[in-house]
């Protein structure tokens, strides 16, 4: 037997070794073009943004190095401070409302038996409508005179409101519109998570005497934690970066009530044509999104205890 092993070792020809090498490297070679494209485009934009943020530019895009001057100007601008605070409130409200809604919809769709595929398909429709279109739709629904919501309120004898005219209400409508856009995809992610949970586990918990609420918080949530993390990344990224919905819904008004950082960035960069300060705002948004995503990744995905493997015996 040993001689047999030896023969087969010796018989590995150069051609076989090349074939093995090719087999191992081809997958990587196939990935490289895509990788270069993504890193190239994204890297160029981000790097370019950073470079731009430390320069002052004129209308002919002539750059003058100004160090951190752009950062100082932006951070000292009360309008920026207000928009950042507004963004944080907007994001917190959107995440809370968005995740709760997504979870409710995901649980509902999970339990739907009749026409399951139809309902699951329908639930994605809002996501297919572009942000601008969604915002226009929300304008129709919430317009003070002739809007659907006020019409209904009127019909049932309740007082109507100037939904898009009142700063607080407009802000809430913006949060709602944002949720309307991002909830379907988050629902889909959570539904995927729910479907991975072995039904026997719920049966075991039923026999163990867990109530519906206990099952949700002690079984479901911990078991779909990674999916919850992914949907949180999605929801907070969309909320931080939202622009099209607010632009078409309120354009930052009334009285700047909905002027979030992305709206402010648009104003600085494209209306005031200060690309340097605009780039600073890009860095701000990017940093927020990165930090939040890393946080979710760490606490929800990487810290998933089920992934822990064999320790010492």
């Amino acid at each position: 037997m040993p001689s047999l092993t030896k023969t087969s070792n010796n018989s590995t020809t150069a051609r076989e070794r090349i074939a093995d090498l090719a087999l191992a490297t081809v997958p990587y070679l196939m990935v490289i073009p895509g990788l270069i494209f993504v890193v190239g485009v994204l890297g160029y934009a981000v790097f370019g943004g950073f470079v731009l943020s430390v320069h002052a530019t004129d209308m002919f895009l002539n750059k003058t190095f100004v160090g951190l001057q752009n950062y100082i100007s932006v951070f000292n601008d009360p309008r920026f401070q207000a928009s950042l605070l507004r963004t944080i409130v907007f994001v917190v409200l959107s995440i809370t409302l968005g995740i709760v809604m997504s979870m409710v919809f995901a649980l509902t769709l999970y339990h739907v038996g009749f026409a399951r595929r139809f309902f699951r398909g329908m639930s994605l429709v809002p996501y297919f409508v572009s942000g601008i279109a969604a915002a226009v739709m929300f304008r129709f629904v919430f317009t003070t005179s002739g809007g659907f919501v006020n019409y209904v309120l009127q019909q049932i004898g309740l007082p109507t409101a100037a939904w898009l005219g009142d700063p607080y209400l407009a802000f809430m409508v913006a949060v709602l519109a944002n949720c309307w856009f991002m909830v379907p995809f988050a629902t889909l992610i959570l539904l995927g998570g729910l479907q991975t949970v072995d039904r026997d586990i719920y049966d075991a918990a039923t026999i163990d005497g867990a109530s519906g609420i206990q099952m949700f918080f002690q079984i479901t949530i911990p078991m779909i934690k990674p999916m919850l993390g992914v949907s949180l990344i999605w929801v907070s990224y969309i909320s931080f970066s939202t622009f099209d919905i607010i632009f078409a819904l309120t354009a930052g008004g009334p009285q700047r009530a909905t002027e979030v950082v992305s709206m402010y960035m648009y104003r600085i960069a494209f209306l005031q044509l200060d690309f340097g300060q605009g780039a600073v705002l890009m860095v701000v948004l990017l940093s927020f999104n990165t930090v939040m995503s890393l946080f979710y990744l760490y606490y929800f995905v990487l810290a998933d205890r089920r992934l822990e493997k064999e320790a010492s015996p």
Partner: peptide, 26 residues
């Protein structure tokens, strides 16, 4: 009654001790 499942149906995010005590805690 108590039931043992084919898939074991253990709570994957809980330690052995927590798996054993879950029903008693409930």
């Amino acid at each position: 009654i108590a039931m043992v499942f084919q898939s074991y149906a253990l709570y994957p995010h809980m330690t052995v001790a927590d798996n054993l005590s879950f029903g008693l805690k409930m």
